[in-house]
Simulated scan of single mutants.
Amino acid sequence: MTIVPTGSVGRSPTPPDRGVGPLLRAWREQRRLSQMELALRADSSARHISFVETGRSRPSEDMVLRLAAHLDVPVRERNALLLAAGYAPHYPETPLDDPSMAALREGMERLIQGYEPYPALVMNATYDVMAANRGITMLLDGVPESLLLPPLNAMRLTLHPEGMAPRIRNLRAWRGHLLEQMERQVALRRSEPLRALYEEVAAYPLPPGTPDEEPGAGLGAGATAYFALPMRIEHEGRVLSFISSVSTFNTPMDVTVAELAIETFLPADPATVKYLHSLLT
C-alpha cells in the first residue's frame, strides 16, 4: 500500500491569550516536577523558572527549547511554546508527499514490505494508516467497505464492532491494552484530535456475544505461555497470534516525522508463522 498523506493531525493552535509561562507551568505540573527539579535538569534556577512561569521574565528561545526538552514536550507543542514566547517555530512540518520526503517514504515502504509475510503498517499521531503491507491487508479480510474508506484509521478498524473486533478472540484484554495506550498518549501530547478519537472508540459497544475472558486463556494444562499480551484473531477458521511492537524516529527534527510510528506484528507461535508463510509467500 502506497504511503498516503492525511494532513495535519495536531491539536488546536495555542490560545492567543495564554503566554509561554502558563503553558510551561502546565507541562511541568503534568510531568509532576517541582520548579527546583526542572531548574536542576535545565541548568537554571528555581527563581528564574518561577519568573518565567509568572510572566515576570521572558525566556530566551534557547531556554524555551531547553525546558521543553527536559519536560518531554512533543515537537509540535515545542513550536507552540516558541510562538507563545514570541519566537518563530523551530521545527518545520513537511507534508509526507513533499519531494524532500522521498527517501523517508521509500525507506518506510521497504521496511514494511521486507517484514512480509508478517503484518506491518505506518501510522500518524491519530492512528491514520499511512502505509500497510500485505500482512495487514490479510487481517482486514471481511471488514465492511465503509470502514475501509480513506483515511483508514487503525483504532477504528480494530475496535469497531463491525471491524476486526468480532474476530479478536481476546477482545476485552486487547481493547483494554489499546485504550490504555491511547490514554497515555493523550496525556503526553495533549492533542484534541487524539482525545476525540479516544472518546469515539472507547464508546464503541462490544460485539454481541463477546466473552468475559477468552476460552482457554487461563494457565491450565495445554495453555500457550506468551511473553507479552498477544492479539489473537480468527482468519479463515484459524486463530492467529501476534505480539505488537511500535517504533518511532529518534531525535526527529520535523513535526511530521516526529508523529510517525511503525507498528509490526510478530507471530507469537509456530502455527501462525507456518500459516503466514504458506499464505503470502
Rank of each mutant, 00 (worst) to 15 (best):
I49F: 11
E93A: 15
L24W: 11
L24V: 05
H277W: 14
S241R: 01
S146Y: 13
R78N: 02
M182K: 04
R78D: 02
H277V: 06
R190P: 06
S247M: 13
L38Q: 02
E180I: 03
V143T: 13
V75I: 15
S278T: 06
R189T: 13
D17E: 15
P252I: 05
P95I: 07
V239K: 01
R18S: 08
S60A: 03
A203K: 05
S191R: 03
G114H: 10
L178T: 00
P252F: 13
A131F: 12
M253I: 12
P193E: 06
A120N: 04
Y115I: 01
M253K: 13
T248P: 02
M164L: 15
P22T: 01
T126N: 07
P89F: 14
A88N: 06
L188E: 14
A271Y: 07
A39W: 10
Q185S: 12
P59D: 05
L121W: 14
I262N: 00
P211H: 11
P150C: 06
L140S: 00
P5I: 05
E145Q: 15
R190K: 15
A203Y: 11
I136V: 15
G163E: 05
T281I: 08
E183S: 12
A165Y: 12
L229H: 05
R78L: 03
A103E: 14
L276H: 00
R232W: 03
P15S: 05
D128T: 07
N250Y: 12
G216A: 04
Y87G: 01
S57V: 06
E162N: 03
A68H: 10
L179N: 06
V64Y: 12
D269P: 05
R47L: 09
G86T: 07
L159V: 11
R28M: 13
V201G: 01
A261W: 08
T94F: 10
P119D: 02
Y198W: 14
L149P: 00
T2Q: 14
N79V: 11
R184F: 08
E162G: 01
V255T: 04
S60H: 04
F265E: 00
L280C: 02
R169V: 15
L188H: 15
Q30F: 09
G222D: 10
E183D: 14
P215Q: 10
S45C: 10
R78V: 14
A154R: 11
T94I: 10
A42D: 03
P119H: 05
T158F: 11
S57Q: 13
N133G: 06
H277M: 05
S247K: 05
L152I: 07
T251N: 15
P13T: 01
V255E: 15
Y226G: 01
L82P: 04
P215K: 12
L104P: 02
M138Q: 07
E93N: 06
H160Q: 01
D128S: 05
A69L: 13
R32Q: 15
P119N: 02
N153R: 10
A88I: 03
G176M: 05
Y118A: 04
P151C: 13
P15K: 02
E259M: 07
G86S: 07
L260C: 09
P74S: 01
E61N: 03
G107F: 10
G176W: 11
D43S: 15
L148G: 01
E145H: 11
A68P: 09
